[in-house]
Design a protein around this nucleic acid. Structure first.
Length: 232
DNA sequence: GCATTAAGGATAT
DNA sequence: ATATCCTTAATGC
């Protein structure tokens, strides 16, 4: 095996940075390409689907419907990433909609096979993309079983700080911010609960969340909060 | 401990 | 100007 196919699976902290398959960029002429306005539903529940989605620009969200009409957010498909490499019949409950204005390409099976023949490394890229998703959702399954909602939120913040945080003096800065709403979606906790938790963190000076920056003032305290019972 | 609902205020586009 | 996000309180499991 040459180095081109030797890779490491790293766990994505948030479900939108799965392995990119940018090699598909060279094969866009084989695909059907469309643009979607923000909010458009690309794949509705129960719609047959046998293509691979590649997002050139923008961002899509994949969610799964529940009996009561609720949609459980699953993951984002960002630029350079792919979606639904599995082929759905008409009895699935997946929905995909555009989060931003997006241009996305659709590859049919035969086209994908052609690409595989021309550049077999694309196979590994697609496998890698799928495996990071599988690994991510294995982690989700564990978290939902073993941690309470408050723990899941704190764990996410802690991991973000460890992995993306930049130490500045005595504190850490995370140079992007998630909305409380998306933190709720990712961790499976209600957004009102997320709000209360951030209030607590703010009041105790542990974490302050800004518009496009989060700073962690007390990483050890944040870590210990993961295993504490929170009073609301 | 947390979800849910509702309702009003705050920001983003 | 309108949609989206955040806050707060009340209630229920």
């Amino acid at each position: 095996m040459d180095d081109g196919v030797k890779r490491i699976i790293q766990d994505p902290l948030i479900p939108e940075m799965f392995h990119r398959v940018e090699k598909l960029e060279q094969f866009l002429h084989l695909a059907r390409t469309r643009t979607y306005a923000k909010g458009t539903i690309i794949l509705a529940q129960g719609m047959e689907f046998d293509e691979i989605i590649y997002v050139q620009q923008g961002c899509l969200a994949v969610s799964m419907g529940a009996d009561d009409g609720h949609q459980k957010f699953l993951f984002h498909i960002g630029e350079g990433s792919i979606g639904l490499s599995t082929f759905l019949g008409e009895y699935h409950e997946i929905q995909i909609h555009a989060v931003k204005n997006s241009t996305v390409s659709f590859f049919k099976v035969e086209q994908i096979l052609t690409i595989f023949r021309e550049d077999e490394k694309v196979i590994f890229d697609i496998l890698q993309n799928l495996l990071t998703k599988v690994y991510y959702f294995m982690g989700q399954a564990r978290d939902l079983n073993f941690y309470r909602p408050s723990s899941r939120v704190f764990r996410l913040l802690y991991n973000l700080c460890i992995n993306e945080g930049e130490q500045v003096g005595d504190h850490y800065e995370i140079n992007f911010s998630l909305t409380q709403k998306t933190i709720g979606e990712i961790t499976g906790t209600h957004y009102v609960t997320v709000c209360k938790l951030f209030q607590m963190l703010d009041r105790q000076g542990i974490v302050k969340k800004g518009k496009d920056k989060m700073v962690v003032y007390d990483l050890e305290r944040l870590k210990s909060l993961i295993n504490e019972i929170i009073e609301y």
